[in-house]
Every structure is written in structure tokens, then in C-alpha cells.
């Protein structure tokens, strides 16, 4: 286990290092001039030169990368070129929004998928199964932004049950939850459709096992067998997919935050790339990468919890 953790930590650091190099290189190769983006079409040459100097854009590439790395190691991610405030603060004020959305999306995905997936497996080759499979096929096919617009039209514009977008913050929990409902559904419906199908097929596979038949034969109810014997043994492939889906949900917030004008990290990264705001883009991409790597790491740990047989192999 100790060796496993060590190997994972080294991998984590190497991944982040590689990401930082790639982002830095891409942002520098990409045509664009932050000073021109900030000062606009009427800017004079001397004003542009002064701003480039202020932003430190005239230093050699390696010098800039090195100072970024050394500062980042001390927790200083620099000052945003376009917002003119420390990047860490910018991220901190938007993190709750994105975390709220990703977590509620994850809960929605898992709960809906497990219930539907198990229900479909229990009703294998019956109407319920066909129905759930048809709806989930539809769910996979619908693009998230289109679904988002449809939800807004129906529930915000016509029925007026929910707000069409925006996020009031957690100081008013009821309003915050209401604001999260439509974005959550739009974000998570695709993922939960995928996961429901995985849950179904994984559960079906387990249901063919001898010990399930034995459990039924020894008098346990169908329900008890499904939730206590089938589901735990069907979890390994489900958890693998959930891990991948968490990453997809976090990155999916970029689209959803734009459609529902939510002030989260997705909007920030979108805007920062357009503004060629290197320090902000760099820090955000690193953060997204760290989240993905961490999610994978947690999945690996969960395998061991779910299936103790894997411990020997780890």
C-alpha cells in the first residue's frame, strides 16, 4: 500500500509538471497579445509597449516559466493579466460555484443511474427495461447545451418554476438550490444515462452468478438480493465509469456555466483564454488536471474498499 501511494504521488507530480509545460508552451505559441487584448484597437504603440513591460511579457520565455514555477511552489500563482488581482483569489471566489455544480451533478448522476440501472436489470427484457433503455439512449444522444436551453424555455420562461440562470450564492440556501436544479439536470443527464446502462449490464452479469441463485434459493427477497448481493458485486465497473464521469462533469461545467451564466471556473477559463491571460489559464488548467488525477486516485482507492481481493494485487 505504501509503495502504491508513493507511485501515485510521483505520478501526480509528474502529470502536473507536464501539464504546466504544455499550457505554458501552447499559450505562448498561440497567436495573441494580452496587451492588445486589454488596450483595444485604438491603443498607441507606446501604451502597448508600456503595458507589455508592466505584465513582464518582454522577459525571455524560460525566465518567465522559471519564475512561475518557483512562485507556484510557494503557493503564489501570480497576478491575472486582465483582472489585475491575484489568481488564487480569483479562483477561490469561483470555486464554490463549480464545486457545488459538479457535486450536485455527481449525486444526481449516481442516484438516478443506480436506481434506473438496477430497475432495468431487475426487469430484464420486460417493458420497464425497454423503457429505461430507450430513455437513456435518448439521454446520451441529446447535447447538453441543447437540453439546457430546452429546460430553461420550459421551466423558467413558460412555467416560471425556476430561475433561468445566475447563482445567488450560498447565503440564501433555498435560492441557491433552486438555481442549481436546471444546470445540474442539464449537466448530469448524459452522464447518468451512460452510467445507468453500465449499471444495468454489470448487474445483469452478476445476476447470472451462482451465489445470486443460491441467495434467492435460501429465501432472501428479490429486493434484498438486488441491493445487498448484486449491487456491491457490480460496483467495480460502475466506480471506474463514475471516476471518469467526475472529470467529465468538472469540464462539462464550462459549457453549462456559459448557458446558465453561472460565475464559476468554467466561465473564468473561457474568458481567460480569450483574453490570453496566461497566469489565470495556467493555474486553472493545473487545477482541473489536479482534480482529474485526484479523482482517478480516489477511484483506485475505492477499488480496494469495494473488492478486498484487489488488495493483494495492489
Amino acid at each position: 500500500m505504501g509503495y502504491f501511494l508513493l507511485r501515485r504521488s510521483v505520478g501526480f507530480i509528474l502529470t502536473l509538471f507536464a501539464v504546466s509545460v504544455v499550457v505554458f508552451a501552447v499559450m505562448n505559441v498561440l497567436p495573441g497579445d494580452p496587451a492588445l487584448t486589454i488596450l483595444g484597437l485604438d491603443a498607441t504603440e507606446d501604451a502597448l509597449a508600456a503595458l507589455r513591460d508592466q505584465l513582464g511579457l518582454n522577459d525571455p520565455l524560460l525566465t518567465r516559466y522559471w519564475s512561475w514555477v518557483t512562485n507556484a511552489l510557494t503557493g503564489d500563482f501570480g497576478v491575472s493579466h486582465s483582472f489585475r488581482v491575484p489568481v488564487a483569489g480569483l479562483i477561490a471566489e469561483r470555486l464554490p460555484m463549480t464545486i457545488s455544480l459538479a457535486v450536485s451533478g455527481m449525486i444526481f448522476t449516481v442516484v438516478l443511474a443506480l436506481v434506473l440501472g438496477i430497475a432495468a436489470a431487475a426487469n430484464h427484457r420486460k417493458a420497464g427495461d425497454w423503457g429505461i433503455m430507450f430513455v437513456s439512449q435518448l439521454g446520451i444522444a441529446v447535447p447538453a447545451f441543447w437540453l439546457a436551453m430546452l429546460l430553461v424555455l420550459v421551466f423558467a420562461v413558460n412555467l416560471r418554476w425556476l430561475p433561468p440562470g445566475g447563482f445567488p450564492g450560498w447565503s440564501d440556501p433555498v435560492a441557491a438550490m433552486r438555481a442549481l436544479i436546471l444546470p445540474t439536470v442539464a449537466l448530469a443527464l448524459v452522464q447518468s444515462s451512460v452510467l445507468a446502462r453500465v449499471t444495468r449490464s454489470s448487474a445483469l452479469e452478476v445476476m447470472r452468478q451462482d451465489y445470486v441463485r443460491t441467495a434467492r434459493a435460501s429465501g432472501f427477497s428479490r429486493r434484498r438480493v438486488l441491493w445487498r448481493h448484486v449491487l456491491p458485486n457490480a460496483l467495480v465497473p460502475i466506480v471506474t465509469i463514475v471516476g471518469m464521469q467526475f472529470a467529465a462533469l468538472v469540464t462539462g461545467t464550462i459549457v453549462i456555466e456559459n448557458v446558465f451564466y453561472l460565475p464559476g471556473l468554467g466561465r473564468l477559463i473561457f474568458q481567460s483564454i480569450a483574453n490570453r491571460d496566461l497566469p489565470t489559464v495556467q493555474a486553472l488548467v493545473m487545477l482541473f488536471a489536479a482534480i482529474v488525477v485526484t479523482a482517478n486516485f480516489i477511484v483506485d482507492l475505492l477499488y480496494v474498499v469495494i473488492d478486498p481481493r484487489l488488495k493483494a494485487r495492489a
Binding site: 436551453m149 430553461v152 424555455l153 423558467a156 420562461v157 416560471r160 430561475p163 433561468p164 440562470g165 445566475g166 456559459n258 448557458v259 446558465f260 451564466y261
Partner: peptide, 18 residues
């Protein structure tokens, strides 16, 4: 001032009296 970049989202916000 509310910042709503997407025209479809803006239209929905206007229509729902936001």
C-alpha cells in the same frame, strides 16, 4: 448589471422578468 453573454440565455432572462 447582470452579465449574460449567450444571446439565448439573455433572451430567457428577459422573458422571465429577471
Amino acid at each position: 448589471f447582470r452579465f449574460i453573454a449567450d444571446p439565448a440565455a439573455a433572451a430567457a432572462a428577459i422573458m422571465s422578468d429577471e
